[in-house]
């Protein structure tokens, strides 16, 4: 069971989260202008990498925020969590997490200690 860092609430068990697929899939501004192939690409095609993968998670049983996680699809190691851009287009740098100790390395509101 993964231990996932919610950027707000800190480390929580995987069971509190729901998975939202690959991060960074942007909805086309004008879907009507797209060919069927282009639309299908947006709809269905994902990078599915071996290794680092940026993906969306929702802290469903916690603060209900969506956020990003960079996870290795081979080792499941999570390199970092990050918030998504807000209305102003700004996102914080994310919670860098030291995997060895499992602790976020910088103090966030939801830090463990």
């Amino acid at each position: 069971m993964l231990l996932i860092d919610c950027p707000w609430c800190g480390s929580r068990a995987e069971t509190e989260f729901s998975y939202g697929g690959e991060a960074g899939i942007v909805r086309p501004a004008d879907p009507d202008a797209l060919s069927d192939a282009e639309w299908a690409d947006y709809l269905f095609n994902r990078t599915n990498p071996r290794g680092a993968h940026r993906e969306l998670w929702n802290h469903a049983q916690g603060c209900r925020r969506w956020f990003g996680v960079e996870r290795d699809t081979v080792t499941y190691r999570i390199a970092r969590s990050f918030t998504l851009p807000d209305a102003a287009g700004a996102a914080d740098g994310g919670v860098e997490r030291d995997f060895e100790t499992g602790d976020p390395t910088d103090a966030e509101p939801g830090d463990r200690r």
Binding site: G20, V26, R27, L56, N58, R64, W66, L84, A87
Partner: peptide, 15 residues
């Protein structure tokens, strides 16, 4: 969850 996902990930400018 679906509505929140769109609001939070795609359209954060919508209040």
């Amino acid at each position: 969850d679906w509505l929140e996902k769109w609001l939070q990930t795609e359209w954060p400018e919508l209040q």
